[in-house]
Amino acid sequence: MKDRHLSLNQTQRVRLEAALHELQSLAPAAASAAAVTVADTIPVNQEDNILKGHGTSDQDGEVVATLCGVVERVNKLVYVRTLRARYKPEVGDIIVGRVIEIAPKRWRLEINFSQDAVLMLSSMNLPDGIQRRRTAVDELNMRSIFEENDVICAEVRGFQHDGSLHLQARSEKYGKLERGQLLMVPPYLVKRKKQHFHHLEQYNVDLILGCNGFIWVGEHVVVGEKTKPTGGQQRFSTEAENFTPLETRKHICRLANAVRVLSALGFTLTVELIIETMEASVSSNAEINDMLGAEFYVQTAEREAKRRADLLRKKNGAR
């Protein structure tokens, strides 16, 4: 928990504790039963031959956890889902990463995985949009596509035979991300969903929830427009012309701060929750910078506790 960085006063501390306590009490009872730590024995029925998945090992015929987390059971498979760990890629995940190196025919990206991901020149669409073999000239012009420290959105293609992770960006929605903020949150807070790209029309903002815990909040880009050739001098002139309006920039900052608050509290990030938090900040007249302060932090915790309590009540009432 990062609330140590906040200077809470006495009332706020009490309120926060109450809210967190309520959140914990609202969690399903199964959650506490399934939590394991390193070297805990996982109770299994030895007769139905189970499959030991990630985070488990066999010691003297017992299944023992090698990680801290939550035990998940899928039919015969028993595995431990970690909470605070690095990202574990799965094929097809949408991720946001940062270019750290340009190597021959490939970019190396930092994606919060145990190794750097590789984006091959051949596994992305060229800016001119033509399908053709990549030539030596393309290879020399790689910096005109992505430079070091650029933020990129891509998809996980899979592991190569040598164990390296390859990405692909074969669609117009992938590519360089500009005019926005990159936020890094623990990957367990982002759940795999159908939709990871979100265009928030009311704010003219794009929100990308990368499965690796990198979250992009930026100005909305019309798909197809960003494939315009952007070379050298021309780029600077266009950048100066169509700058991001102040209103949009404020929205970006508000959304980004909402994500920061939610991740500091440790809530699973969904678009609905982010927008709700942002709107709450607007309606409570909180300044953008006050969103990271103690008062809003406590308010967010209380609001979420209330929301979950209401949901639970509704669910129980329906039964």
């Binding site: 928990m1 914990q24 969690a27 987390g69 909470l83 605070r84 949901l311 669910k315």
Partner: peptide, 12 residues
């Protein structure tokens, strides 16, 4: 472990 898992999981 419990703190993290209980707070993260949205009930519904």
């Amino acid at each position: 472990d419990l703190n993290l898992s209980k707070i993260a999981v949205p009930t519904m």
